[in-house]
Design a binder for these strands. Structure first.
Lengths: 154, 154
DNA sequence: GGTGCTATATATAAGTC
DNA sequence: TGACTTATATATAGCAC
């Protein structure tokens, strides 16, 4: 999508590669957010920069996933909510997530050293967290679906 | 990016919403894969369908971080064998990914802690296979494009 | 649910500052 | 790095199967 057609293979020039990462990363982040908003889908996105020299770690957790991963209070959802309340909550959390993201962007310019936090070991930790989050979400959705089936008005 | 400009807010019509999810989901998956290939970045992507039923999520872990797991219904890709080679390759790829997913599901029932399922070594093995398959497909696509360009009738 | 088409909206490569 | 520009490549909305 640029002046020239780009073949999908590793970009040799490190400089160009970093630029491409920066641009495309933002693009994907935007699209993930759009998907979430448009379709009400839970979307999680992790991107680790190839250099690892900067923070390079974006997270966008939307819908219930924010609750699970960012807010880190999955217990809250296990009791079940009425749908309107849940949706309101989700919207609020979405807005909150953007503010967190914006704050992270600001922090980035002030402390370049934070990059070391996100090592591969950290990634594994996050992966475990994600896996568990998936289980909780699936469980919750199943519960919600059962409620819908048994309710005559829905 | 379509016939009409779409405002970024929840799509009211459930049918249109599902279609948008399907189309955009694929788009993001593609872009995430491209980012990983182009920049050598580790990318993780989770998408939960708004309906919460069936397919409901794709996971793509790339690079050295985790692995690539595509979750799809294999039935979707069943069809005649008179399709072009490209589609055949892609279908095979999807079937394989489904098998990986099923294997993981089986393991899940034996292991109480799901996080143990994804050993890095195992993940890398799958990731290499899928990456190579994708490369083959990309190469084939390129060849097909070149054929089109050099052929005056197309 | 999926495919394919076409017109159009978006994303982005390359360049410049 | 980031911001902006421009030309071009891609993604996708709406439609028909």
């Amino acid at each position: 999508m640029g002046r020239k057609r780009l073949l999908i293979k590793r970009i040799d020039n490190p400089c160009s590669r970093q630029i491409a990462y920066s641009k495309r990363g933002k693009g994907i982040l935007k699209k993930a957010t759009e998907l979430s908003t448009l379709c009400g889908a839970d979307v999680g996105l992790l991107m680790f920069s190839p250099t690892g020299s900067r923070i390079s770690f974006f997270v966008i957790w939307t819908g219930m996933m924010i609750s699970v991963v960012l807010v880190r209070k999955p217990e809250t959802f296990e009791g079940g909510f009425d749908v309107p309340l849940l949706e309101t909550l989700e919207r609020k959390l979405c807005e909150l997530n953007w503010k967190i993201y914006e704050a992270q962007e600001k922090m980035r310019s002030y402390s370049p050293d934070v990059s070391n936090i996100y090592s591969i070991a950290e990634a594994q930790h996050h992966q475990q967290f994600v896996t568990k989050a998936i289980q909780r979400i699936e469980k919750f959705k199943k519960t919600k679906l059962l409620e819908k089936e048994t309710s005559p008005s829905l």
